[in-house]
Design a binder for these strands. Structure first.
Lengths: 251, 251
DNA sequence: AAGTGGTCTAGACCACAGA
DNA sequence: CTGTGGTCTAGACCACTTT
């Protein structure tokens, strides 16, 4: 006898799970996989079809997403298997707040400066505005467990974030931008450089001048691929590293 | 009148394109998109269906891949659009050789040491073998345009790469591993740290002691998710940076 | 209201792995 | 040979954007 489990279909009870079936299935499988040993086989796709009463393409959508997350891997002709646990799931756009929490640290923020001024040439190019357009600039020292971690300078197009300077800037800027201004930042381009700290940055971060650090220049884009935020961050190298999973391209 | 174009179907002429249709379509569209301005709309999915005589799921497979590459972006209810050109396509596993060529530099290699020894505790853990199992170790200075760029130490499980030390190690190790040993490295986990160079590394890289650098620790996995290679690389920060595109997760 | 991408189905055949 | 994942089809309906 086979066990049949049903994913909600939208016409169920009032609090039905309204996510697409493939997302529900993905979440469900993710939970089950956590209890399994690496390199053990998952049920076959056709088995999942009958167990969850969905079509095979829906099963494949869920499994493809899990493979993308690095949670399972597939071997043509053999099966789908639990991947070995990995340090960082993927390359996801995360806010400083989320990043620190994921590392088990308590994030904090101290605002050093907040002002409005013309963009200037470089920032204007990154944000695709003209150099005389005003931008809001926020300079913050971001801490983890109450010790300085990162020195951050954010630039936003002033016209698109009215009254930003009057809000609470102590938390996640991404959340604030989405909730208050409807700006959903879904993608970012980053350039990472290794540097030796100059006097000013070293003092603000509480380490000796010349200490190694990461310099990160980031431009974030919304769901229409418009640049909305340009940020420069300097991370203390003694407290911060980057974990990256990469895949080989097939093209 | 609509233009119809046909993708090869396998039963065509002898030199027919044997790739899946969605890959052919993806490559074709990629070429067309290069000629288009950013943010202009692609043909609709249903238009592509009739133009290329394929089903809509095939079209969607191709477009999904292009969206994944960051070449197009999709807006529900509105259309699929050409993305703004981006610095680095994605986070792909590339060899040093490929990486340098992509940057327009000529890669070179000087072998400093090549030997075989017990793995030791840390390397054994990374490669999931026992500390007494022998590993092959290659130390190479990798150059770009004939100037030092990176100091690299590769460790491989000796038993899986017999006679490696007698081969030409001047080129891409990934290519050698795949062609001669059938090891397809498809995934890697990396940890990037910013450091100040010690005396020895600085001399080998031709820069002053204390100069900033990237330290990269990488473990590569094959198509069965078995660790096959553990590598430590030190990159000169004055010549090297990392361009990274990230996306926001929806889960 | 019309048109777009997003989800889902049921079924078919192919390519590859493994006994 | 059997069973697996990979590709592909034709069609339906839903969710969303735009006019």
């Amino acid at each position: 006898m086979t066990t049949e489990e049903v994913l909600t279909d939208g016409d169920g009870p009032h609090d039905a799970d309204r996510r697409p079936k493939h997302e529900q299935l993905r979440a469900r499988l993710r939970g089950e996989i956590e209890l399994m040993k690496p390199h053990t086989a998952l049920p076959t796709e056709r088995e999942l079809v009958s167990r969850y009463q969905v079509s095979r393409s829906t099963v494949r959508q869920a499994l493809d997403a899990l493979a993308d997350d690095g949670i399972v891997y597939r071997v043509h002709g053999a099966g789908t298997f639990v991947a070995a646990p990995t340090i960082s799931k993927s390359h996801r756009l995360t806010s400083f707040t989320e990043d620190m929490r994921a590392r088990g640290l308590v994030p904090g923020t101290r605002l050093l400066a907040a002002d409005e001024a013309p963009a200037g040439r470089q920032i204007a190019e990154e944000l695709q505005i003209t150099p005389t357009d005003p931008v809001v600039r926020l300079v913050r020292v971001r801490s983890a467990d109450e010790r300085p971690m990162c020195l951050e300078t954010v630039q936003l197009v002033a016209e698109r974030v009215p009254d930003l300077l009057r809000r609470d800037l102590g938390g996640s800027l991404y959340v604030l931008l989405e909730n208050d201004y409807g700006l959903r930042l879904v993608r970012a381009e980053q350039v990472w450089t290794a540097i030796a700290l100059d006097d000013r940055s070293a003092v603000l971060l509480g380490v000796p001048t010349g200490s190694p650090a990461f310099l990160v220049q980031r431009t974030s884009f919304d769901d229409r691929d418009r640049p909305q935020e340009a940020t420069t961050s300097i991370y203390r190298a003694d407290r911060y590293n980057v974990r990256l999973n990469v895949r080989r391209s097939q093209s």
